[in-house]
C-alpha cells in the first residue's frame, strides 16, 4: 500500500515538474505582453505630462508596447 502511494506521489511530482518546465516560455510571453504595454504606455504618459502633448506619446507608447509584447509572444510560439 505504502509502495503504491509512493509511486503515485513520485508520478505526480514528475508530472508537476514536466508541466512547470513547459509552462516557462508561456509565462514569460504573457507577462512580457502585459509588462510591455504597461511600461511603454507609462513612459508615453510621463512624456505627455512633461511635454504637454497629451495624448500622443501615450497612444504611441501603448501601440509600441503591443508591438513589443506581441513580438515576444510570436517568438515564444514559433520557437519550435
Amino acid at each position: 500500500m505504502s509502495g503504491q502511494r509512493d509511486h503515485f506521489l513520485a508520478k505526480s511530482l514528475e508530472s508537476l515538474q514536466e508541466n512547470i518546465r513547459r509552462s516557462g516560455p508561456a509565462a514569460t510571453a504573457s507577462y512580457t505582453l502585459v509588462g510591455a504595454v504597461l511600461l511603454l504606455g507609462g513612459i508615453g504618459y510621463l512624456l505627455d505630462q512633461w511635454l504637454m502633448t497629451s495624448p500622443w506619446f501615450l497612444l504611441g507608447g501603448l501601440l509600441l508596447g503591443m508591438v513589443v509584447g506581441f513580438y515576444e509572444i510570436a517568438k515564444a510560439v514559433w520557437k519550435r
Binding site: Y31, V34, G35, A36, L38, L39, V67, V68, Y71
Partner: peptide, 17 residues
C-alpha cells in the same frame, strides 16, 4: 529597438507582478 525594449520589459514585468 524592439528587442532592446523587450530586454527592458522583462525585468519590469517581474517588478510589477
Amino acid at each position: 529597438p524592439i528587442e532592446l525594449m523587450g530586454m527592458l520589459v522583462k525585468p519590469f514585468a517581474l517588478t510589477m507582478r
